[in-house]
Each structure stands twice: as structure tokens, then as C-alpha cells.
Design a protein around this nucleic acid. Sequence first.
DNA 1: ACCTGTGAAATCGTTCACAGCA
DNA 2: TGCTGTGAACGATTTCACAGGT
Lengths: 222, 222
Amino acid sequence: MKAEKISEVTTNRLSVYLRCLSELAAEGERTVSSGTLEKRFNLNSAQIRKDLANFGEFGVRGVGYYVESLRGQLAGILGLDKEHRVCIIGAGRLGTALADYQGFKMSNFEVVALFDADKTKIGKKVGKVKIFDIKNFAGVVKRDNIKVAIIAVPGESAQKVLEQVTAAGIKAVLNFAPVPLRVLDGVKLNTIDLTTSLESLSCFLAGSNGKNLKPISKNGRK
Amino acid sequence: MKAEKISEVTTNRLSVYLRCLSELAAEGERTVSSGTLEKRFNLNSAQIRKDLANFGEFGVRGVGYYVESLRGQLAGILGLDKEHRVCIIGAGRLGTALADYQGFKMSNFEVVALFDADKTKIGKKVGKVKIFDIKNFAGVVKRDNIKVAIIAVPGESAQKVLEQVTAAGIKAVLNFAPVPLRVLDGVKLNTIDLTTSLESLSCFLAGSNGKNLKPISKNGRK
DNA sequence: ACCTGTGAAATCGTTCACAGCA
DNA sequence: TGCTGTGAACGATTTCACAGGT
């Protein structure tokens, strides 16, 4: 094992492996080999082994991996053994839908606050989560020990909100605004860009990815 | 220009460039250089030029790119000049939130149907979009000329739904279920995996990515 | 026989650096 | 001079293939 930088694609796969293991555990499997994972979940077995080997020697030659044990290791590596307190900025459609999304529990995330600038929303609740004034952001973050922020505001305000978030000392941010954001060193920003995902489908349907590209000749304005 | 396979990361960036250009156009800029885009939106100028050069010679040496003209080219490449009719499968929280998400318009996507298996939901409407019985999937898809499907069902049913979707002839699918899915050749599947995005943040906070990895010694069971 | 862990090879993607055109 | 388009260098990631443990 090496003590080097692990790439993001690698850790993202760990997350996938963990879910596969949970499924196997639910079915009562005690051990699993990388080959079985390859066939069953169409992953690449060499890649699975390489990924895991970054963090230790979890497997047993001739046998495979012990499902429960590996599950625990992956949960630890991914930091899912501690609760993460999360806030959501933007109490619009997306923000409120996220606020009572049930899937957070699985990863030990707890949404504890919503923020908005709209006076008519402040003080209301979405499920159990109260909507606070964005002006009180830093105070609530400190008081409630919030470590993760989700940005669910329109693109125009995203950069400003991000700066507010990092100024309050938050180091992990999930962004849904479809704009390029600048972030300070030491802060982790993940963007989920629905627009790009959609346009990627559109591009596929238009055939612009595949082979046959028409040599669009010359630039527009002469 | 070459007539080769364009990678997904490349086309995803086109989508970003297009949004940057729209912003510049709104500000009245007539031309822009890759260097300006680099500084302003923190992109890499060489990469921008390479990406664009895959599709033609859009720039003018000594000048840069004509904003409006390039915008049109990119919209064409991404297939945004034609309307795409979309359905959403799963009328739960996520599905309904997506059904009246306003951002689809920007990319010329139109949500025309929701599907669910829950009898109590069928026939109701979310905004202007009617909820149909999933049993009538293929029929509605054909009748309404639907070309794109969004899967917003729980992980357990996602694979089955995907098979139904492809059986109905749909070739472009956006999936929100956090499970590995198998897809036929010729079908484009994009997955937006909220769980992985979150766990990536958690992993960062746990410090498992960075350098200092403890040499977790041996496999679990003895 | 089976399966992991891992160098080496192959592939893919990004950045550099500059020739050449406006 | 300013900027594009692009080969070449570099770096990262994936896959291969096999030595070695059980």
C-alpha cells in the first residue's frame, strides 16, 4: 500500500462498491471476489482490486473479500461512520425537495437547516427543517455545528453564496447551480450539473459525439 | 479537424462554454478569446481551443471567437436547436420536483409525461404534466414521440424500468437511481448519483483522499 | 484451483509551446 | 502583436498479465 494521493474517480468508485456490498450482505453473502463483483455489477475486476489496494490489503487470496468486513472498511474510508450536519442554501423547489430527501440517511448525513433570502419563507419549516435568514448564516452554522453546505440557488447568486459559505468555515460543498465557480484551496466543491447532463444526452441524439462529424467549415462573421 | 470519436468530457465542456458565451452575449461582448475565457471562467485556454477544434475552425487568429456565431455552433453541436420531448418515470418527490424544473427550457427540453405504478397517483397532474400508468409506457412514448427518459425511481426498480425504457425504443436516459445499471449498446445512459457526490464530500472531510493514509493492516476475518 | 495484489503496457486526457495567420 | 490550431510532452487512468498466497 502507498501513502499517495487518491484520485476522486477512485473514491467515487468506493462509494459504488459499498452499495454493491450492502446488497450482497442483504442477500446473506459472506464473501465475494472481484470477479463476482465484475459480473454481477458490471465493474472491472482489476480496477476493483487496484482501488481497494490503495487503502490496505483487504482481500484473501483464493477466497476474495469478506463482505461485512470490507463494508466496514469502506464506510470508514468514506467517513460514513460519523454523522455529517448539512445545510441547504436556497429554499426553492430543489432546496425543499432535497430537504426531505430520504437518501441522506444512508450516508449518515443529516439536514439541519435551510437558508433563504426571501422574507416570506423565513421561519417556515420543510418537514422538520427550519428556514433561516441567509443573513444569519455564519451564526447558525457555528451554533449547529454544520460542516457541509448544499447550494441550491440560481446561477447568478451561486458565487456569492459560495463565498459566504467558505467564509463561515465550511470546507465541503455540493453545488447544483450550473455555473463555473471559483473556490479557495482546501475547500472541496462538487458540482451536480443537471444542464450538462441533459445536454450530453441531446448531443448524443444529435450524433455530434459519434464518428460522422461534418467538417463545419469556416468561422461565422467573415 | 478530424472525424474521430469525441469524448464525453469534451462534450460536457462544450455545454459549459455555451453558458459562458450566453453570459458574455448578455453583456454585449462581440468577440472573446480563449485567454479571456480562461481568466474569466477559470477554464484552460489550450483546452478550450482543442475542444472547439474538434468540430471545426471557429476562431480567427489575432481576434478570437465571435460570441454569437460560436454560440450558434455550439447549440447546434449539442443538438439544442431541436426540441427534445422527455418523460419522467417515478412521480415521487424527485420526479415531481423535476417535472416542473424550469431549467429544462434553456436546453430545449420539454417534459411531456410522468409515469408511476401507484394507482393513487395515476391521472393526477403535476403542473401541466399528467401522470400515466407505467403499464401504458410504450404506447404513450410512441404517441407523444418521446425521445428521452429520466429515471427517478428507487434503486430496486431502476434496472427493470431501464429495460422497459429501452424496449420502447428510447435511446437517451438520465438516471437518478444510485445503482449500477446495465445498458444495451447504442443507448446513452447518464447517471446523476447524489449518494456518491455526498460520500465524496464525506470522504474529503474524513481525510481519506489526501495524503496521510494509515496502513490499515490486515483483512477483517482473522 | 482460485483469487488477490501489482508491475508493466496501453489508453486516454491535459498542458506546453510554437508555427502561422490576421 | 495577438490569437488560433496543433504536434509533442506530460500526466493520469485503465487494462493486462502474472507472481505468489491460501
